[in-house]
């Protein structure tokens, strides 16, 4: 839309309306968001005259409004108000040429009254997602952004679990690392079960008196029942977690590598 044809009279008559808008708008925006979004606009509003400048201001104001409303909490009243505000903003933008061509202060004040009438209630609480410069501000984009942030948070937790995954950059590579780690763990389980089976069949000592219902005893007691009592005595002096960590042996990795290769 091109700026309309403006004559001197329209300027002189349009100016009061812009002044009244300048008087009303900062008030409304301060009441809406509780922020000082309007200090920059006041000066431009006063110094700039003309339809193009004013339309730019209106567009800016509309952007600010939608941002404030969309970043405010997700209660439905605010959302509805935001939509209405957006619609009214675009209507004002469309009717900007009409306002300027008519040039009377009445339409301008009507627009101002419309703005003040449709202002949303002050938001009660904020979700902590805020649109940065250049990001989309409608509620779907915000929700999607929040969802993605949550996923990446969990991805970070996952990254801490997998050794050597902190240096990897990029989602695909991180996922690759995770997949490799899980697969190696599964292969280890397979290999260890084969080994356990071999050991199990070699030592032909079926255990008679293993308590079937008792899940309480720590594993070295159970292992002692299975594999003979002297081993259990050997490990019984240490506490259980120490026993578990003590038994980790790099030998197994070597043997596993030998068998796999």
């Amino acid at each position: 839309m091109d700026p309309p044809i403006i004559n001197e009279t329209s300027f002189s008559t349009a100016n009061p309306s812009s002044y009244t808008l300048a008087g009303i708008w900062p008030f409304s925006s301060v009441r809406m968001g509780g922020r000082n979004v309007s200090t920059g606009y006041d000066e431009s509003m006063v110094t700039e005259f003309g339809a193009g400048g004013r339309r730019k201001r209106e567009v800016n104001f509309e952007d600010e409004c939608s941002k404030i409303v969309c970043t405010s909490s997700g209660n439905d009243l605010n959302k509805v108000n935001g939509k209405r505000m957006k619609i009214s903003g675009s209507k004002d933008e469309l009717g900007g040429s009409k306002i300027d061509q008519e040039g009377n202060s009445g339409s301008g004040s009507k627009a101002a009254v419309g703005q003040t009438h449709k202002q949303p209630e002050p938001p009660k609480d904020y979700i902590h997602v805020r649109a940065r410069r250049g990001q989309a501000t409608d509620s779907h984009s915000l929700a999607e952004r929040a969802r993605r942030e949550k996923i990446s948070e969990r991805m970070k937790i996952l990254q801490d679990l997998v050794p050597g995954c902190n240096k990897v950059i990029g989602k695909a590579l991180v996922l690759d690392e995770i997949i490799n780690y899980i697969q190696s763990l599964q292969h280890q389980v397979e290999f260890l079960s084969m080994k356990l089976e071999a050991v199990n069949t070699r030592m032909n000592s079926p255990v008679e008196g293993f308590p079937t219902k008792d899940l309480g005893p720590p594993p070295f007691d159970a292992a002692g029942l299975l594999f003979g009592s002297q081993v259990a005595r050997q490990f019984a002096h240490g506490s259980q977690p120490e026993w578990l960590h003590m038994q980790l042996d790099p030998r197994i990795y070597v043997m596993g590598a030998k068998i796999i290769c």
């Binding site: 763990l185 280890q188 389980v189 260890l192 079960s193 080994k195 356990l196 050991v199 199990n200 030592m203 594993p219 292992a223 594999f227 003979g228 081993v231 050997q234 490990f235 026993w243 578990l244 960590h245 038994q247 980790l248 042996d249 197994i252």
Partner: peptide, 14 residues
């Protein structure tokens, strides 16, 4: 995997 490793070690020591 840790528990299974320790079990295997137990068996080998036995």
């Amino acid at each position: 995997v840790e528990v299974m490793k320790s079990l295997v070690d137990l068996c080998y020591t036995k």
